[in-house]
Simulated scan of single mutants.
Amino acid sequence: MLEITNLTYRSEGFELNATFRVERGERLALMGQSGAGKSTLISLIAGFLSPNAGEIWFDSTNLTQCDPSKRPISILFQDSNLFPHLTLRENLGLALSPRLALNAAMEAQISAALAQVGLRGFEGRRPASLSGGQQSRAAIARILLQNRPILLMDEPFAALDPALRREMAELICSLCRDLGLTLILASHDFTDAERMCDRVMLLSEGQITEDCPIAGLRAAPPAGLVPWL
């Protein structure tokens, strides 16, 4: 379980306040206009920003002051964060050994992860030689190797065409189910949220204004979510 308690963050006139919990294996969508606080909340959970007050807990561990690299969290951003000068083998290898001291078992793990996302045999390819969808798949393979229970996603498929967005959403859903991952997705697209998540939380000017199951929202949406449907 991930628990956010009285979390407060202030910066240049903006203030975020949040209290909520996400059960293990749950998939939560964060929605709201640009500047509402979605990416700020993702960054606080990841440890890239430090809160002014409040706490972040995972099970019995207080993550509030924990270094980002020590948190039980993987992150998928829109640009996939692949190093252009490294091969996929090396990009994925960083998840297993920061110095790329890869042994035979690690090499096998990398090949297996690439195969799992449909990139069998791509170990020697560099990101520039891949399509946008293939780069997203490679970033997902790296998440598999990190083997962490919480996955944060910040508009990860915004640059992809609709067919690829659907394909990537289906792949993420499959991995979350198979691995029991807890997912928090920041998105402007309700269709993406609907495909990947079972709960939606609306942020407005740094405040949580709606928090409800996603099933059935198109038929009977709360007023705050109407613009997003």
Rank of each mutant, 00 (worst) to 15 (best):
I110F: 04
C176G: 03
S174R: 13
Q207E: 13
R137Q: 01
A215P: 11
A193V: 08
P162F: 09
L164H: 12
F122G: 00
A108E: 14
L203Q: 06
A115T: 08
S204H: 13
R137V: 02
C176A: 13
H188C: 12
L114K: 01
A139H: 01
T182R: 03
R142S: 03
A215S: 15
A138G: 00
C176Y: 06
R148I: 05
G132I: 04
H188S: 13
L151C: 09
L171A: 02
S131G: 01
S204L: 12
C173P: 00
Q134V: 04
E107H: 14
C176V: 09
T182L: 02
C173W: 04
I150S: 04
R142W: 03
I208Q: 08
S129Y: 06
G132C: 04
A141F: 02
A159T: 13
E194N: 13
F122E: 01
L202D: 05
L175G: 11
G118Y: 01
C197K: 02
L164D: 07
Q109W: 07
A215I: 12
A159I: 10
E155V: 15
L179S: 13
S129Q: 12
T209W: 13
Q116M: 06
D198G: 12
P127Y: 12
S136R: 15
I208A: 06
V117G: 01
A163C: 11
F157L: 11
R195Q: 13
A128W: 08
M196A: 05
R120T: 07
S204P: 10
L160P: 07
E123W: 07
L217G: 09
G132K: 05
A169I: 06
S136M: 06
F122C: 11
D198P: 04
L203Y: 07
I214G: 00
V200T: 04
L185W: 06
I150N: 03
S129E: 09
L114Q: 03
M153D: 06
F157S: 08
P127R: 10
L179A: 11
C176Q: 07
C197V: 10
Q135W: 02
R142T: 04
Q134R: 08
D198K: 11
I143C: 10
L144D: 03
A138R: 00
P156G: 15
D211K: 09
I140W: 00
F190E: 02
L175P: 07
F157N: 11
L171E: 03
L160C: 09
Q135G: 01
R199H: 14
P127K: 09
C212N: 09
D189P: 09
R148W: 00
A193Q: 06
